[in-house]
Computed example of a mutant assay.
Amino acid sequence: MTKDPRDPKGLIREAYLIDGITAAECRSIFLDWALGVPVEKDTQAQVRALLLDYAEQPNDHPMTQTLLAALHDAPPPRRRGGRAGRLGTES
């Protein structure tokens, strides 16, 4: 079997092979995969390519849903430190 340059550890491939895998497990696997993407690579382009690679998988598979969610931009962090953060008040 040849190594996929987008999934060199085979994490995404293995996730699709695990019967009954949960969404939480897929998110954990995805995080491990994402941490291994080289900085110079466009992560979203890699995710789009993986979705094409696994297009035959059901759209409701937890890994497919995780990959689709990864294409959405994350909202900016809203955490506040100090007293305002502990009290949950915004100014």
Rank of each mutant, 00 (worst) to 15 (best):
M1K: 07
M1V: 13
K3G: 11
K3A: 15
K3V: 14
K3W: 10
D4S: 14
P5V: 11
D7H: 03
D7I: 00
D7Q: 02
P8K: 07
K9Q: 15
K9T: 12
K9H: 13
G10E: 03
L11E: 07
L11S: 06
I12D: 03
I12E: 02
I12H: 03
I12L: 04
R13D: 11
R13G: 03
R13Q: 11
E14L: 11
E14H: 12
E14V: 09
E14P: 00
E14F: 09
A15Y: 05
A15L: 07
Y16A: 04
Y16H: 12
Y16G: 07
L17V: 00
L17G: 11
L17M: 07
I18S: 10
D19T: 12
G20E: 05
G20S: 05
I21K: 01
I21W: 01
T22S: 15
A23G: 08
A24E: 15
A24L: 12
E25I: 10
C26L: 04
C26V: 07
C26W: 06
C26S: 10
S28G: 05
I29K: 04
L31A: 11
D32N: 11
W33S: 00
W33T: 01
A34C: 04
A34T: 02
L35C: 05
L35Y: 13
G36F: 03
G36S: 15
G36N: 09
G36V: 02
P38W: 11
P38M: 11
P38L: 05
V39H: 04
V39K: 12
E40K: 10
E40W: 09
E40H: 12
K41E: 14
K41H: 09
D42R: 08
T43E: 15
T43L: 15
T43I: 13
Q44N: 14
Q44K: 15
Q44A: 10
A45C: 00
A45L: 10
V47R: 04
V47G: 01
A49T: 14
L50I: 00
L51C: 06
L51Y: 06
L51E: 08
L51V: 04
L52T: 14
D53T: 14
D53K: 13
E56S: 14
Q57D: 01
Q57V: 02
Q57F: 01
P58R: 13
P58D: 13
N59G: 09
N59H: 07
D60G: 02
H61W: 00
P62G: 01
M63D: 11
M63C: 09
M63Q: 13
Q65S: 09
Q65V: 15
T66A: 03
L67C: 03
L68A: 10
L68C: 07
L68M: 09
A69N: 02
A70V: 09
A70C: 04
L71C: 01
L71M: 05
D73T: 09
A74M: 08
A74Y: 04
A74F: 08
P76W: 03
P76E: 14
P76F: 07
P77D: 14
R78M: 13
R78H: 10
R79Q: 13
R80M: 10
G81H: 06
G82M: 06
G82S: 08
R83I: 15
R83H: 07
G85L: 06
G85A: 08
R86F: 06
L87K: 08
L87P: 00
G88N: 03
G88F: 08
G88M: 02
T89S: 06
T89D: 06
E90G: 03
S91E: 08
S91Q: 07
